[in-house]
Amino acid sequence: MSFIEIRQLKKQFRQAVKSPGLAGAVKHLFSQQYVDKLAVAGIDLDIEEGETVAYVGPNGAGKSTTIKMLTGILVPTSGTVRVGGIDPFKNRMDNARTIGAVFGQRTQLWWDIPVSETFSLLKDIYEIPEDRYRRNLDQFIELLGMEDFLHLTARKLSLGQRMRADLAAALLHNPRTVYLDEPTIGLDIAVKQRIREFIKRSNKENGTTIMLTTHDLGDIEDLCNRLVIIDRGSLIYDGTLEAVKNRFARERVIHCQLQHADIPALHDTFDRMPGVAVESLDAACVSLRFDRFKATASEVISAVMLHGEVADFRIDEPGIEHVIKQVYERQLDLEDGHALAAAGTEAAGA
């Protein structure tokens, strides 16, 4: 049995349907109409202890709903969830002792209470032994750079400070599992780095299982060895990030700075070359998109050099963001590993 075990998990929400305007509101008063929305539509997922899993999907895909069922906030409509053998809703308190969570959009700090006092309250809530509390707190303050704002109330913190304090609050009791729901949303790169380092360290040193939802693909690349993609309540991919990259990040863009180029000839050449498409082309610069399974970089460069002098060149790999965006947009079919109608590829093949 896996550490986290999700079986045929479903969550259905009931939404009131209201026609717009006052008339709609009055009408709703007498005849209430509802639609059922399946936020999570039957998910199976196993996560082992110590794994770092990125749980990714477009807005409204069901990520947060899944996390809320894993943390015991929501009761599943059907299916089962077990975390360390515990049903998180039925034995919510037992589960709560062993988990930590950060919801990027919502703080778990007390608004009007200084951060240091919040930590001290959490010590009593989680019954953290004094020596471990001291050790963790000192370490967290240093790693997350919290010295400057410990005495402030949460209300007065900047977003970056708040997120760091929230992360420390979630990990103070050495939870076995940590759920991070968009922990780096809206943060600058320096704070992001700090938070990622901190999470990585917690995973390495304590073997903390980490489940992370994010729109920031840097988070995924940096933190997670496993990628789970969900869309419209169902899993559409579960595997390594590398595999996605290798299978789908097949396009490269080559940028050449040109001198004395024969532009019509270049156009002519690349219009006929399979797997290559002209992104932009003028006297000074040419950008070419090519499929690395159909043409090599050296072939492309050689072809350019036939019709002009290359002063400098650069090759761009597509970011994982580009790949995942294609998955969201259903341009890539992950089931059979076949790239469908990705705009660039299609143009190149024509």
């Binding site: 809320k68 943390t71 015991g72 308190m93 037992d94 709560a96 919801f103 919502r106």
Partner: peptide, 13 residues
């Protein structure tokens, strides 16, 4: 406003 989420995360009634 969903503040109950945070309460439910804690091992306190």
């Amino acid at each position: 406003n969903g503040e109950l989420d945070v309460m439910l995360l804690r091992p306190v009634s």
